[in-house]
Design a protein around this nucleic acid. Structure first.
Length: 953
RNA sequence: GGGCUCGUAGCUCAGUUGGUUAGAGCGCACGCCUGAUAAGCGUGAGGUCGGUAGUCCGAAUCUACCCGGGCCCA
C-alpha cells in the first residue's frame, strides 16, 4: 500500500520523546505534589539552603481569621509568594511567616450570637475561650487554603495575635509609647445603648427608618454679638433694640441641647437674617441664605409676614460670635462655650445652615470641639439619665423621654420657632433593638500631635517625613497615606469588648490611674508567661509582681484593673516588633509590606505610627499595594450582587497554577477584573507554555550537555539567534521580577514561548532535529540552544507555575544545578559575552523577508498550488542591500528559516519582492523536502542525499 | 461631598520627554499540516485611544470640564 511507503522511514527519525505529559491534570496532580513537598519539608530545606545568605524580608500582613478565603486573598498571597520565591531563587534568604489577626469584634460577635442568651451570664474568660477556639479553627482552614495555592511558608508556626509572645510584644511597644508620654485618657463620644448600658461598635448597629422630632430653635445672641451683627450690616440698628436677635439651629435630638456648647457655620456659605413676629415678639434670626425658604416654610410664616435681610455675610464673618444657651444659665464646663465656630460639614441640604454642636454627643461635634478647645461635655450617665450638671427640671430624667419637656420649655420661653417630624435612618442596638445614643465616655488615645521627648517632633511630623523615605509601589501611595496622616485625629486605641488584649491600666480607689512604662513592661512579662487571659483571672499583685515598685500613693492590694481592650489595629500594627524584631531578630525596617490599597489607612499607617513612636523609624523600606477584584464591568464584587467568584471553586475547577498564572497576567496595581471566564481563558496560555516546555524536553531527551554541547561560535546562526533572544529574555524578566511587575514577567515569557519558540524556532528546527543524524553537530547545536532555553524558562517560570515547573524540573534529565526541587535552584544569569550587540538589525531584516515569503506562500496555498511550505521553491528578487543580507546568512539557511525546500536569489531589484512556485524536484520520503539530491543514492532512490547518509549505517 | 486612583482592539497588556498609516499575544474568521496530534503552522479582520472643549504646525500622550468605575473617608 502507498501509505506503508510513506511511513517506512518514520523509525529512522529522531522523534521527540518525554514523560512530561501534554495533559496537565492539575486538579489531580497538584495535591500530590504538595503532599510530596510537605513530606520533604520543602520550606525547611529552602531555609537551610539559604542560611547565611543576605536576608530579604517580606513581612506578611495578617488577614482576619474568619471565613473562607476569597479572590482578594488569592491575589494577595500569590503576589507575596511570587516575591518570596523569586527572591529565594535570586539567592536571598527570604523567609515567609504567615500571620493572622485573631482578636476583635467580628469573631466576638459571631461567637456571642452563636452562644445565644446564655452569653450574657458567661464570664469574659469563657467567652474569650470560645473566641480563641473559633479563631483557631479559621486559622487552620485558611492556612490549608493558602497552601493549596502553592504558597510556601512557616505554616506550622505562624504568628497569631492572641499568642502570649505576640501579646507581650504589643505591650512592649505600648510601654515605649507610654514612656514617651504619647498615651492619654480623654472623653470621646461613642455609640451607647442605654438599655444594655454598653458601648457599641459600628458593626453592632442596625439602621432603621424611624420618625424623629425635628425642631428649629433660636439661640439668643449676646449684646456684644448683636453689636457686631449691626456692624456687619446684618441687623439694622433700630430693629435690634426692639427685636430678639438670635441664631437659629435645627436638630432631631432635642435631648442633646442641654449639652450644647457651640454653633457651627460653614466658612463659605452666605448667611442672612429673617425678621418675623411670633406671639407678640419680633425676632431677627440668622440663617443660611440658601435655607431661608425652607425655614419660612417650616415656621409656616405667611407671605408678607416676614422680611428677609438684604445683606449677606460669609460664615467666616460669624466665627467667634457669642450666644446664650436657651436654658442653661452658666457654662457647665471649665472651657470656653456658647460660641460660633466654623465647620465644613455644614450643608444646605437640611436645617438652617447653623449646626447645634454638642461635643459630648456627636463625632463631628467632638472633632470640632477639639479644634476649638471646647470641653467634651456629656451630662448623661450610663443608664441614660441626666446628671446633676443640667438644669433641675432635667436632672435624673432619661434622655430618651425628655423630648416633650424640652420642646415645651423652649415653646414656653419663646425659643422654639417650629417643630415637626422627620423620617430618617437611625442607629439601633442590634441586641436590644433600642435606639442608640452618642455619649462621651473615657477612652485611651495615642496623641499624634504630642512632641516626643527624644526627637522633639510629633508622631504626625515624623510620619510625614518618614513617608518620603519609603518606596511606595505604585508611587501615588505616598500621596495617599500622607493625605491621611495630615488630617488624622488622635488614635483612639481603647474598645469596650472582651476578645482582645487588655489595656494594662490600673486604677486606685481615688480614681488615679497607674500607667507607666514600668507597669506596662511588668504586665508584658506576666502576659508573656500566662497569656492575656490572666488579666481577668489574676490579681494586680500577681500580675505586677510582689516586688513591683509602685509610684507614690499607690497600694498594690487596692488597685483595680481596667477592662478596656486594645483596638485590633494596634495589635496588628505592632507585628513588625512582635514578629520581626522580637521573635525573629530581623532588622527593622524590613524590606517589604504588600497588601491591598485599603491598607494605606489601615495596617500601613497603623504600623507606621507605633514604630515611629517606639523606635523612631518606619517598619518598612517599601510598600507595595494591589487593587481589588471587580466584575467584568468593573463593578465591585459581592455575594449579594451575584457577581462574586468563589476562590474555592476556581481552585478546584482549574488548579492553583492556573490561578497563579492568572494573577501574574494582570496588572495588580489597578482593579482586577475577575470572572470565571477570565480565569478559564488563562488555561490557553498555560497550555501553550506547557507544550513549549514539553517540546523542548522531548527534543533534548538524548542530549548530554556536559559532553555534547556545541560552543556558541560553532552553533548554527539561528541557534545563535535563539541564544541571544534568550539573553534578552533573562535580562528583561529579571528586571521585571526585581521591580515586581509580574504581568510583564508573564507577557515576556508567554510571548517568548509563542513567538520565538513555538512559531519560529521550534518549527524551523524540526528538520534538523528529526532528520539529521542523532549525534550530528547540526542537531547538537540545536539541542544546545534548546537546553539553555529550557533550563532558563523552567526557572524563570518557577515562582509563578510552582507545581508545573517542579514537574518539568523532574523531567529535565540533566539539570543546570544539582538540587532536588526547582524552588531551591537559582535564577539563570545573563551571559554577557553572548549578549553581543549588532545582530538585531540583521535579524529584523531576515525576519521581515521571511514574513514576506510566508505571505506569498499563503497565496500559493490558497490557489491550491502547494499545501505545505516544504513543497515550495521561492525566489527572492532583492535590492542589493537585501541580497547582501541573504548571501551573508546563506540561502539554504534562509530556506530552512522559511521551511521551504529551496530559496533562490535574483539581485538588482529596485524593491524586494518574492515569487514562489511548486518545487520542480522530487519529494524525499524521509524528510519531505523537495531537494535535487533525491534519488542520487541508488540504495535509497526515494530519499535525498542527506537522509541517505543518515540511514546508511 | 472630600482625598487618592483608573478608563487604549472581544480579552490581557505595550505605547520614552506630545510627531509619520496606535502595537503585541490571545481570542475570532479563513486556510494548511497530520513525524509536538485533546498538538503545530500560516493569512486575515478587529481600536481613533471614556466624552466634550481647548492649547499646539501636530495629542492616546498637555489643560479644563463632563461621564463611568474603584479604594478610603464623610
Amino acid at each position: 500500500m502507498a501509505d506503508e511507503g510513506k511511513h517506512s522511514y518514520r523509525d529512522t527519525l529522531n522523534l521527540p520523546e518525554t514523560n512530561f505529559a501534554m495533559k496537565a491534570n492539575l486538579v489531580q496532580r497538584e495535591p500530590q505534589r504538595r503532599k510530596q513537598w510537605a513530606q520533604e519539608k520543602i520550606y525547611a530545606q529552602i531555609r537551610a539552603a539559604r542560611a547565611g545568605a543576605p536576608l530579604y524580608i517580606l513581612h506578611d500582613g495578617p488577614p482576619y481569621a474568619n471565613g473562607d478565603i476569597h479572590m482578594g486573598h488569592v491575589i494577595n498571597k500569590v503576589l507575596k509568594d511570587f516575591v518570596v520565591k523569586y527572591r529565594t531563587m535570586a539567592g536571598f534568604d527570604a523567609p515567609y511567616i504567615p500571620g493572622w489577626d485573631c482578636h476583635g469584634l467580628p469573631i466576638e460577635s459571631k461567637v456571642v450570637t452563636d452562644l445565644g442568651p446564655k452569653a450574657r451570664e458567661m464570664p469574659k474568660e469563657q467567652i474569650r475561650r470560645e473566641c480563641m477556639k473559633y479563631a483557631g479553627k479559621y486559622v487552620k482552614i485558611q492556612a490549608r487554603q493558602f497552601q493549596d495555592l502553592g504558597v510556601f511558608g512557616a505554616f506550622d508556626d505562624p504568628y497569631l495575635t492572641f499568642k502570649p509572645a505576640y501579646e507581650a510584644g504589643i505591650l512592649e511597644v505600648f510601654a515605649h509609647l507610654v514612656g514617651k508620654g504619647l498615651v492619654y485618657k480623654q472623653l470621646k463620644p461613642i455609640h451607647w445603648c442605654v438599655g444594655c448600658e454598653t458601648a457599641l461598635a459600628e458593626a453592632e448597629l442596625e439602621y432603621k427608618d424611624v420618625a424623629s422630632p425635628s425642631i428649629f430653635v433660636n439661640f439668643p445672641a449676646t449684646d456684644e454679638t448683636v453689636q457686631r451683627l449691626i456692624e456687619l450690616g446684618l441687623v439694622p440698628d433700630e430693629r435690634a433694640r426692639q427685636a430678639v436677635v438670635s441664631f437659629m439651629i435645627w436638630t432631631t435630638t432635642p435631648w442633646t441641647l442641654a449639652a450644647n456648647l457651640a454653633l457651627a457655620v460653614h466658612p463659605y456659605l452666605d448667611y442672612t437674617t429673617v425678621r418675623y413676629e411670633k406671639n407678640g415678639r419680633t425676632y431677627v434670626s440668622v440663617v443660611a441664605t440658601d435655607r431661608v425658604q425652607a425655614v419660612v416654610q417650616a415656621g409656616k410664616l405667611p407671605a408678607g409676614q416676614y422680611v428677609v435681610g438684604d445683606k449677606t455675610v460669609r460664615g467666616t464673618e460669624l466665627e467667634g460670635l457669642r450666644y446664650q444657651h436657651p436654658f442653661v444659665e452658666n457654662n457647665p464646663t471649665d472651657k470656653d462655650a456658647y460660641v460660633v465656630i466654623l465647620a465644613d460639614y455644614v450643608t444646605t441640604e437640611d436645617g438652617t445652615g447653623l449646626v447645634h454642636t454638642a461635643p459630648g454627643h456627636g463625632l463631628e461635634d467632638y472633632l470640632s470641639g477639639q479644634k476649638y478647645g471646647l470641653a467634651v461635655y456629656s451630662p448623661v450617665q450610663d443608664d441614660g439619665t441626666y446628671d446633676d450638671t443640667v438644669p433641675t427640671w432635667l436632672r435624673g430624667r432619661s434622655v430618651l423621654d425628655v423630648e416633650k419637656d424640652v420642646n415645651g420649655w423652649l415653646q414656653e420661653h419663646g425659643w422654639l420657632f417650629a417643630r415637626g417630624q422627620i423620617q430618617h435612618s437611625y442607629p439601633h442596638c442590634w441586641r436590644s433593638r433600642d435606639p442608640v445614643i452618642f455619649r462621651a465616655t473615657e477612652q485611651w488615645f495615642i496623641g499624634v500631635d504630642k512632641e516626643l521627648p527624644d526627637t522633639g517632633k510629633t508622631l504626625r511630623q515624623m510620619a510625614m517625613e518618614n513617608v518620603e523615605q519609603v518606596r511606595w509601589i505604585p508611587a501615588w501611595g505616598q500621596k495617599r497615606i500622607a493625605g491621611m496622616l495630615e488630617s488624622r485625629p488622635d488614635w483612639c486605641i481603647s474598645r469596650q469588648r472582651s476578645w482582645g488584649l487588655p489595656i494594662p491600666v490600673f486604677t486606685a480607689p481615688d480614681g488615679r490611674t497607674l500607667l507607666t512604662k514600668e507597669s506596662v513592661l511588668a504586665v508584658s512579662k506576666h502576659v508573656a508567661q500566662h497569656g492575656s487571659d490572666s488579666w481577668f483571672t489574676h490579681s494586680p499583685r500577681q500580675i505586677l509582681g510582689d516586688g513591683f515598685a509602685l509610684p507614690e500613693g499607690f497600694n498594690l492590694d487596692e488597685l483595680q484593673k481596667e477592662e478596656n481592650i486594645f483596638d485590633v489595629w494596634f495589635e496588628s500594627g505592632c507585628s513588625w516588633y512582635s514578629v520581626c524584631a522580637r521573635r525573629e531578630h530581623w532588622p527593622v525596617p524590613v524590606d517589604l509590606y504588600l497588601e491591598g490599597s485599603d491598607q494605606h489607612r489601615g495596617w500601613f499607617q497603623l504600623s507606621l505610627l507605633p514604630a515611629l513612636g517606639a523606635i523612631g523609624s518606619a517598619p518598612f523600606r517599601s510598600v507595595l499595594t494591589h487593587g481589588f477584584t471587580v466584575d467584568e464591568k468593573g463593578m465591585k464584587q459581592s455575594k449579594s450582587l451575584g457577581n462574586y467568584v468563589s476562590a474555592q471553586d476556581e481552585v478546584t475547577k482549574y488548579g492553583a497554577d492556573i490561578l497563579r498564572l492568572w494573577v501574574a497576567s494582570v496588572n495588580y496595581q489597578e482593579d482586577v477584573r475577575c470572572t470565571d471566564e477570565l480565569i478559564g481563558r488563562t488555561q490557553d496560555a498555560y497550555r501553550k507554555i506547557r507544550n513549549t516546555l514539553r517540546y523542548l524536553l522531548s527534543n533534548i531527551n538524548d542530549f548530554e550537555p556536559q559532553q555534547q554541547a556545541v560552543p556558541y561560535e560553532q552553533m548554527f546562526a539561528i541557534d545563535q539567534w535563539v541564544m541571544q533572544e534568550l539573553q534578552k529574555l533573562i535580562a528583561e524578566v529579571t528586571e521585571a521580577y526585581d521591580e515586581s511587575v509580574f504581568h510583564r514577567v508573564f507577557s515576556l515569557l508567554y510571548n517568548f514561548c509563542t513567538v520565538q519558540m513555538s512559531s519560529i524556532y521550534m518549527d524551523v528546527l524540526k528538520d534538523r532535529m528529526y532528520c539529521d543524524a542523532a549525534d550530528s553537530p547540526s542537531r547538537r547545536s540545536g539541542q544546545t540552544a534548546m537546553y539553555h532555553v529550557l533550563s532558563a524558562l523552567v526557572r524563570l517560570l518557577a515562582p509563578i507555575l510552582v507545581h508545573t515547573m517542579e514537574e518539568a524540573w523532574e523531567a529535565l534529565i540533566h539539570k543546570p544545578e544539582d538540587c532536588p526541587s526547582i524552588h531551591l535552584a537559582h535564577m539563570p544569569q545573563v551571559n554577557p559575552t553572548l549578549a553581543e550587540a549588532g545582530q538585531e538589525a540583521k535579524w529584523q531584516k531576515l525576519m521581515s523577508l521571511r514574513d514576506e515569503a510566508l505571505r506569498v506562500l499563503e497565496g500559493l496555498r490558497r490557489d491550491k498550488i502547494i499545501a505545505s511550505n516544504q513543497e515550495a521553491s521561492i525566489t527572492m528578487q532583492c535590492t542589493p542591500e537585501d541580497a547582501a543580507a541573504l548571501k551573508e546568512f546563506g540561502l539554504s539557511q534562509f530556506a530552512a528559516l522559511c521551511i521551504v525546500s529551496e530559496a533562490k536569489l535574483a539581485e538588482g531589484a529596485a524593491q524586494t519582492t518574492v515569487t514562489a512556485g511548486k518545487s520542480p524536484h522530487a519529494k524525499c520520503q524521509r524528510c519531505w523536502n523537495y531537494w535535487p539530491s533525491v534519488g542520487t543514492d541508488p540504495e535509497h532512490p526515494d530519499i535525498c542525499a542527506r537522509c541517505a547518509a543518515v540511514v546508511t549505517p
